[in-house]
């Protein structure tokens, strides 16, 4: 007769080794990596004409806009960017732009590096980001092993995790949730909808950028970001993020 304990033993341990080891291919599908021009910047103009959301300009790829629709692939792009593409600054998501080597700011909540409590706010998502964030609780990712806990009240949280493009109707609830967080606090924008409006940028009645409503400390690009990306973003808040490959 099958039993729960038998099922659990039979199933074995499936928990990811991330971030001690790099994310596996199963954890990050092809679209989990940002696109890069294979043969360098001379392809950018071709990509710019293919991109439906304006993530590719003549000079740079803006990871904060890319919705991973794969339309630029025939133009010489490939999903080959680093898994750890979360950044502390919005400009850090724009690759290829000659930047004045700004030092990465210190983690906002370094003092809480062993345990951080997270409150999720959906500002207008398609539900995919929500489910990817909730997936952190499943046995594959088990965020609690890294001291990342989800709370049911903003008053118990250190980090406000925001998904979705902020709608006019959610601005007030969002601000009130932010105000309810005790200091020190940090905000993580998960998904390109929260970063730039993503596929919905420019729609009347929507706020394209979360960082114009509340200060954002970490940007996690992706549409939606996979659980390892969200985990990476949360660890970056407390200064425990994995060093980006090739960075």
């Amino acid at each position: 007769m099958p039993t729960w304990i038998g099922q659990a033993v039979r199933h074995g341990i499936v928990t990811s080794r991330y971030p001690a080891e790099p994310a596996s291919e199963a954890e990050v599908p092809p679209t989990g990596r940002p696109p890069v021009a294979v043969k360098g910047s001379k392809l950018l103009p071709a990509g710019a004409s293919l991109c439906p959301v304006g993530a590719i300009s003549d000079r740079a790829v803006d990871r904060g806009r890319c919705i991973r629709c794969a339309r630029c692939l025939p133009g010489g792009f490939e999903f080959r960017g680093p898994v750890e593409s979360a950044t502390r600054t919005r400009t850090g998501l724009v690759t290829g732009e000659p930047s004045p080597a700004a030092p990465e700011p210190t983690p906002p909540l370094a003092a809480l590096s062993r345990s951080v409590h997270v409150f999720l706010v959906d500002a207008g998502s398609c539900n995919a980001c929500n489910l990817e964030v909730l997936a952190l609780a499943n046995p594959f990712y088990d965020s609690q092993r890294l001291g990342v806990f989800f709370t049911n009240s903003p008053r118990h949280a250190d980090v406000l995790l925001v998904v979705g493009v902020p709608t006019e109707e959610m601005v007030e609830p969002l601000r009130r949730a932010y105000d309810a967080l005790p200091a020190p606090k940090a905000v993580v924008a998960v998904g390109v909808c929260a970063i730039s409006g993503g596929a919905f940028a420019g729609t009347p009645g929507l706020h394209d950028a979360l960082d114009q409503l509340v200060p954002v400390d970490v940007y996690v690009p992706g549409c939606p970001p996979a659980p390892v990306h969200v985990l990476d973003g949360l660890l970056r808040v407390v200064g425990r993020g994995r060093k980006a490959e090739g960075a």
Binding site: P29, P139, F140
Partner: peptide
Amino acid sequence: QTQALAEEMLRVQGSVFGHRWLFG
């Protein structure tokens, strides 16, 4: 156990269609 199975299904979708949520 059921959450793990749901995650396996997302990974199957990712491997077949390149995207965990089938976008695009």
